[in-house]
Design a protein around this nucleic acid. Sequence first.
DNA 1: ATGAAAGCGCTAACAA
DNA 2: TTGTTAGCGCTTTCAT
Lengths: 348, 348
Amino acid sequence: MGHNPTIADVAERAGVSKGTVSAVLNDKSSVSDATRKRVRDVIKAMNYRPRASAQHLLQGDGDRTIGLVIKEDDNPYYAGVIAGVRRVAGPRGYVLLVASSEGSSEAEHRVVEAMAAKDVSGLIITPALGEEADVTHLFELKRRNIPFVLLERIRGIQSHIVDIDNVLAARDAVGHLIERGHSHIVHFAGPPYSAHSQERVEGVRRGFSESSLVFRDEFIVPTGAHMEDGYETGLAYFRACGADRPTAVTCYNDLVAIGLLRALRELGLRVPDDVSVVGCDDLPLMDYLGTPLTSVRIPKEEMGAAAAEILIRHLEAEEPPPLEKVTLDAEVVVRASTTDLASADRAA
Amino acid sequence: MGHNPTIADVAERAGVSKGTVSAVLNDKSSVSDATRKRVRDVIKAMNYRPRASAQHLLQGDGDRTIGLVIKEDDNPYYAGVIAGVRRVAGPRGYVLLVASSEGSSEAEHRVVEAMAAKDVSGLIITPALGEEADVTHLFELKRRNIPFVLLERIRGIQSHIVDIDNVLAARDAVGHLIERGHSHIVHFAGPPYSAHSQERVEGVRRGFSESSLVFRDEFIVPTGAHMEDGYETGLAYFRACGADRPTAVTCYNDLVAIGLLRALRELGLRVPDDVSVVGCDDLPLMDYLGTPLTSVRIPKEEMGAAAAEILIRHLEAEEPPPLEKVTLDAEVVVRASTTDLASADRAA
DNA sequence: ATGAAAGCGCTAACAA
DNA sequence: TTGTTAGCGCTTTCAT
């Protein structure tokens, strides 16, 4: 048969009424053992499964759910954000559902639609930057009056936003290096699907322009967001650059930095003696590495928490509250992977 | 007012019929601009939001969703499992929704209920071991005929299962050490909410019993599943043990091992010279550490993929297929964190 | 362009 | 114990 069996199909086949089947389904005591068994058998035989969406339509209120859309399952960065969301959403009785777009705008579209179809109360989204800037699903959410908070600024869409100042973050990273006497600095840039990535590149530019150093396009090395990316790009780059080797690298994120660290190690270059490395995100892991990594601290938990606060406030408001824009600050956390070139010279 | 506004409320307030409101909602062209505007205004004013569950009840078929319940958001182990699930579920048109129980049986209950209420097609669950062995939600799933696959064996419940042989895994880890001449080995054990944890302890026992060494209860050191746990326990343990220091530690998982590594580093103990360390899971990260970590490879992706295969097969079968039990193998991956005691002696 | 009515799959209230 | 009826919030004919 074509479609899935309904309660009516079961009722008919079992020779009882829909009401009786429903009673069986809900374990009511008012059904005779004989009927119950018969109905159960039919249910099993037909592989019948009640549609939760039709059951009572109970969800209307009893069901608080927040959908969170991230971009990479394997980046501990999101674990931080998730923890923040959970910290505020949990106590308020919201269940958290997470889905990843893996950086694909199209996948994001599907995932958001699915969550909307599932009737989540609201969404928190880290939007992927599509070539085609496909944000139709976001407009769809607005049309359907499903509240959402964005975790990255995206043009052409009005919404709640919680973001950090990536330009400043990257500028500070570069600034930190320049202060310590570095003049040959390159940036291992993130993936194109990330607004953060682009903003951080801009921040690097800014860092240069605020110093006496002159920026050159080659300082930006396209890399990615994963350890592998940092590793492979690192290997290739430092093999190729020969004598004209940079004294420092700022990375799109910590994962890339970890990859780069490995590449440098394998190439026999020492960190920070030969090359200083600074990451971004400040993952908990950073303190655990052999040479703890200097990184720009992104307030991941705070971001998640703030987003959840705003979303829930919106959800529970009688009328739609005004749009909120929150920008959190990043800050360089100095560890062992960056050295002061001046004092190093002095020492030598 | 008490309950959420319905389409009828909107219709009434706007002085039109439900049908018209519905038309506006769905952007039909058959509505006059004037009416449309009026309806839209009322919708906004009432903060009305259509219930997706009632809209067409369309989900019935068009909506393929797999819910995955994990136990720790911040453990890259699950990233592997997720990748495996996604690899097979994605191409088949299933959207993946992930939720974490954070090791709490009660939270797992809530999360599973929520997913069931959302009408996910099926579930893959890493069950938390509750004190009270609360598996009522799993029975609930069976009653409602919602297929699921377990990623950890759990007693008292019949279901599809994909698991690994943890006893063997831990035994091999210990065996590896014993082969290399270690005789004082301890195990940093995992959290009580994990069956894997208990099985691995059992495996350690087994490793001893298969050698000439005699096992003692103190060899099992309760630790946890996170880096912090490994770090703190490591610090405390190695500070306390004085001269009677173990030459090797097997860890519940890689995260714990990473924490332990840090502790040893801070205590001035060298790995593997002073202490050999072996982890478990074989996270991608292991290759990136300063001293790459010997670990027991758990086939994470394969587990996820196998679970997804079984689940989807069940979902798409006309009648319920027989229960499947898959057990995958683990295998020690030797890296730099374990040394051969015999040859070390020789060298000395 | 709009309204009235039927129907989606289910539960609940009431008879029988 | 069971069947019948109404109704949940929405969409979709079909008149008008």
